[in-house]
Structure formats: C-alpha cells, structure tokens
Design a protein around this nucleic acid. Structure first.
Lengths: 135, 135
DNA sequence: AATTAAGTGCAACAATGTTGCATTTGCAAA
DNA sequence: TTTGCAAATGCAACATTGTTGCACTTAATT
C-alpha cells in the first residue's frame, strides 16, 4: 500500500507532509503517537502544517486515533483504508505499545431498550506477547 | 454516597475542591467533561488547584477517565468506589453524552498466544434511548 | 488550642493547538 | 508544457491547557 494511492483514492492533494505521515504509519507495525510520527518524518515541517495535515487525515478517516488510559494517544491506519474488519486493540502496560488484534473481532453487545449501536471500540489492556516472553 | 466518606476511605484530606468535584460527579447521571465539572462547582477555584485535585482523584482511582472519538474526555466515578462490576460505556453521537451501561458486562475476548489480559475497556457508540425516542 | 503536613492561590512558564495572511505548490485544463 | 487557481505551507501572533515553585492557609491529629 502506498501513501500516494491512498491520497488519490480520497481525492486529497498529495502534499509532502501528508505523504510522509501516511508512510510512517504504514511502515510501523504498531500504532504510533503524534511525537513518534513527527520524529520519524524525513521532511521538516512547521508545527502548523503538521497539525493541519494530521487533522485532515483524521477527518477523512484515513488515520484513526486510539486512546488508552492516561491520555496516551496513538494513531493507526483506519479500517476503511486497510479493508480490515473491525477488531480489538491491545495496549501493553509494559512497553506502552498499541497493536491491532486483527484476529480478535469485536463481539456484539446486547444493549438496553432503545439504544442503537453503530460502532464499538474495544481496548484490551495487559501484557503483550513480546513483553511476556522476554521476562 | 457522600464525598466526605469517599475521601476518608481513601485517606485523603477532605478539601473543598476535592469534595466539590466528587459531589458534582455523584449528582450527575452521566459522565461529565472537565469543563462541565468546573461549571457546576460552587466554589471558585484556581486553575492549578482544580488540576491538582483532579489529578489526585484520578491517581487514586476515585474518578475514572473515559475517552471516546475525537478526544472527547469525560469523567465518572470509578468502579472501585461505586462497587459496580466492569461494564461497557455508551457514547451518544446525538447528545454527546457518555453513560455507564451497568447491565452490559464486558465480554471476554480470546487473545492470541502469550497475550495476557488484565482489563478491558468497551465503548459502544450510537444513539441513546432518549435521543432515539424524541425523534 | 497548637502543630504540621497537605492543599491553595498566584505568578511564571512550557507545551499544545489555532488563526490570518502572504507565499508556494499540486494538479488539471488549455 | 505552460498557465491558472485552489489548496497547502510557513510564519507570526495568539489562545488554551497543563506544570512548577513558593508563600500562605487549612484540615486533621495531639
């Protein structure tokens, strides 16, 4: 998957900053924080530009915010881009990483009367495989 | 349930600001944002004091942060205080409210090998009963 | 009532996010 | 390929949010 294609699909101009952000996220095997993304960008962009590019990508649901305890905020490519089904996220207390659990689908919840579900977010917290085995 | 009792239980001084924050949350039927809490406080506290009281209550797990899409942050009394079991939260797109679904327990998820679960957070998003029936 | 550890308010600061505007860039149409 | 224009960029100024140090006040214990 390439950043340029994604931007074209969403009818967005392929600016350097946007492409950079998307590339960084594609090449990461886990969700990254805003600073982690900024640090990995090759180009040097103004704070404003970064914020604006970021906001655009979130608004168009190309990237997706994942928030766990303690206001830790991480970003990953959205399901609408990756074509993955809805899945749970895992937050590791040890290494603070957030990973997509592609094989763990969201379960359906029976809601009280007159509540209508449209989407559900699940964050499972604990110790990830890597941290568990290296101890 | 009274604010003073809660503070005593947790061996915290019952300062005016802390009591105020807890009272506001107890008397709300839904989770409140920081500003909603500040607005409902009777006393007029310095920003610093408010942040510090807030942080203390979160650290001691008396109040609990709930974050949904779009960095909306709301607070509710923690389960350890209310003695309620783990339950899902519901976020209404219409009225932006966050409510505890006391009757909707968190389901167990089967994790990949070597992942260890310690707690799970579920936020169901959609339309709440009130908004659905008044339309 | 006195003691004292903890909470408060203030000022100064740091970090984070936003807006307006002049300039540059991406893209499409000639 | 060049041209035109809307959109993206960088900069400066600003607003908001959160933190820290310090002198003063308050809550709880003796």
């Amino acid at each position: 998957m390439k950043a340029a294609e994604i931007l074209n699909t969403y009818h967005l101009k392929r600016s350097e900053c946007r492409e950079g952000i998307i590339d960084v996220i594609i090449n990461a095997d886990q969700a990254l924080s805003e600073n982690e993304i900024r640090d990995r960008l090759t180009g040097n962009f103004d704070r404003t530009t970064f914020y604006r590019s970021f906001k655009t990508l979130v608004q168009h649901k190309i990237i997706h915010k994942i928030i766990v305890d303690n206001q830790l905020v991480k970003y990953a490519l959205d399901n609408s881009v990756t074509k993955k089904q809805e899945h749970a996220h895992f937050y590791c207390f040890e290494c603070q990483s957030v990973k997509c659990l592609d094989e763990v689908p969201i379960q359906r919840y029976r809601l009280p009367d007159d509540y209508a579900e449209s989407e559900t977010e699940v964050i499972i917290k604990g110790t990830c495989a890597k941290c568990k085995t290296t101890k």
